[in-house]
Design a protein around this nucleic acid. Structure first.
Length: 318
DNA sequence: AAATGTGGCAACCGCGATCAA
DNA sequence: GTTGATCGCGGTTGCCACATT
């Protein structure tokens, strides 16, 4: 918590924060009430002019943050339940540090809360379990160990030099400056696709948080795929323009399914190659329509898992 | 009991994206 | 096409509370 203060001039360059006399620091109950009443009456948005209209000596950004992270009625406060924690872990593995996207799939939780929880609890927990919280891969220096099989399931190994850490594109960008072009990861691509989907719909894509059965034939028969995502190497992943939300949610759930995406709680659980094949083969079927699962990823995953038969049967001839 | 260290988290900051003029 | 305002996001800071020395 910060001590309350009034800014004479801040380092924030936006006009809303450069005003002299803007209050900073923790919010008082009176301010909360003013803001809460105003937003309930007038609705969200127009944050720039809101403070004046609501009678607050705060900048618009501060008002928005307070509303979004604390005052919104839908915000659920308090202890993060084990199932929420598992969901955060799986979504982070899928999406990286895209806190707003993760928060959009955990009802009542804010991006700030999830980010804080990750930084203070989950990253340490993973380290204690010998898992790199950035990459979700084992911290051990032997990348060919069996434990990597699960982690490699969604890592485009062909896109990056061997043993290079699985950093997000933005992290690589910042670390390298403009010297090197960032390599988009699968997390980046999936995050981008989800963002685009959500922008088209103007609301988050719902995701079931309960048990999800990875039945045979999932996504079989999915059509109307107009184009797929691709990285700098021209490799395609998935998948734009699902023809309805349920299919996209099913796909996302497929990626998050415990049987192959949650090694944290059940590290002994093996990934059945046949399950991976059933997961990816429908996407491969789409290749003729312009979208496909990265074949190299499928190949390397299945080969790592040592199931050449499934690979030969389901993938190679396509 | 006082000093110091650490954890937790609300709030701030700066940047990029978007949009309207 | 350009510019400026605004919004939203992710990273970071700084303060309080509690634990440890």
């Amino acid at each position: 918590m910060r001590a309350p203060s009034f800014s004479a001039s801040t380092t924030c360059k936006t006009p809303c924060c450069s005003k002299v006399g803007i209050k900073r620091g923790p919010w008082t109950p009176e301010e909360d009430e003013l803001l809460s009443n105003y937003v309930k009456k007038e609705g969200e948005g127009r944050w720039r002019t809101l403070p004046k209209r609501a009678g607050l000596q705060r900048c618009g950004k501060s008002c928005r943050l307070r509303w979004m992270n604390y005052l919104r009625p839908s915000v659920k406060r308090g202890h993060i339940a084990p199932d929420e924690e598992d969901l955060i872990l799986r979504l982070h593995r899928l999406l990286g540090n895209r806190w707003s996207l993760i928060a959009g799939r955990i009802p009542g939780r804010t991006d700030n809360e999830i980010k804080n929880y990750w930084n203070t609890h989950l990253s340490k927990k993973l380290i204690n379990q010998g898992i790199d919280p950035r990459t979700h891969k084992p911290l051990n220096p032997f990348p060919d160990s069996p434990g990597d099989a699960v982690s490699n399931a969604f890592v485009p190994t062909s896109n990056r030099p061997p043993q290079q850490p699985y950093l997000s594109a933005s992290t690589i960008d910042k670390a390298n400056g403009s010297q090197h072009q960032a390599i988009p990861t699968v997390q980046d691509d999936i995050g981008r696709v989800i963002s685009e989907q959500e922008q088209q719909r103007n609301h988050p894509i719902p995701v079931e948080t309960g048990n999800w059965q990875n039945s045979d034939g999932i996504m079989v028969g999915l059509h109307n795929v107009s184009h797929g995502g691709s990285n700098n190497n021209g490799q395609s992943y998935i998948i734009d323009n699902f023809n309805n939300e349920d299919m996209f949610s099913s796909f996302l759930n497929t990626l998050m399914d415990d049987t192959y995406a949650s090694p944290y709680q059940r590290p002994e659980a093996a990934v059945p190659p046949s399950q991976l094949v059933s997961m990816v083969s429908p996407a491969v079927n789409f290749s003729s329509q312009g979208a496909m699962w990265d074949a190299e990823l499928v190949r390397s995953t299945l080969e790592t898992l040592g199931d050449q038969q499934s690979y030969n049967t389901n993938i190679r001839q396509i």
